[in-house]
Amino acid sequence: MTTPTATRPWGRTLPAPVVAPLERIRAGNAYDDNVYSTVDVHWVLYDRVLRVTPATVDDPDRDRFLLSKGHAVAGYYAVLAAKGFIPVDWLDDAGGPDSRLGGHPDRTLVPGVEIGSGSLGHGLGLGVGTALGLRAQGRTTPRVYVLLGDAELDEGSNHEAIAYAGATGLAGLTAIVVDNASASHGWPGGVATRFTVNGWTAATVDGHDHDALHAALTGHDGHRPHVVVAVDGPTPGSRS
């Protein structure tokens, strides 16, 4: 087994099981920071939160994970490979002419991928619809998780979804916003306030602290939608 030797600029280690697949998909190229800002969230979700396995990717009662910021795909593919959703050797030619793994994911090509994404601002609406559909079918077990970025929140379509889900108390929905401070004009007052003012519960945590992420990702109260703001950076909590 590969030891977790890969490090990020500020010295944190990657989740051990994703090191090898991430190196394989990386193929010596450098990754944008977004890969490293998000891979811990991917890992904690698939390792400790989501009730879905390679055997249950078509089970109507599975939890859904919707990657809205579709460019954060390398860590996603690495986690899917580490968890057995896709063969590890698919990672070797990602983006190639015969590959199922593109620079943005396609749900029709990759087992376990719930939505095709890439154009920002589409995942949360799809997540709201999925949660409504499950509720209409009386399926109270599955939960819908949608992963976004703080810059993605610039897209107005997100705010249509945030307002509607909050106003109607859509309890089966959790949004996760990886906040790597990449929004051009920032979010004065914090990302979470955009949700809480609309009636969501919120938790803002260190986006690389697995226990804190786990607690936040399972911290919904069952009566309203929940948002987890996963803050990226070398010194979480010190940012304004």
Binding site: H122, V128, G129, G133, Q137, E160, Y164
Partner: peptide, 14 residues
């Protein structure tokens, strides 16, 4: 936008 996005989610849920 949300109306059509939600429609997509509903369809994904069956």
């Amino acid at each position: 936008q949300l109306m059509v996005g939600v429609a997509g989610g509903l369809a994904l849920a069956g």
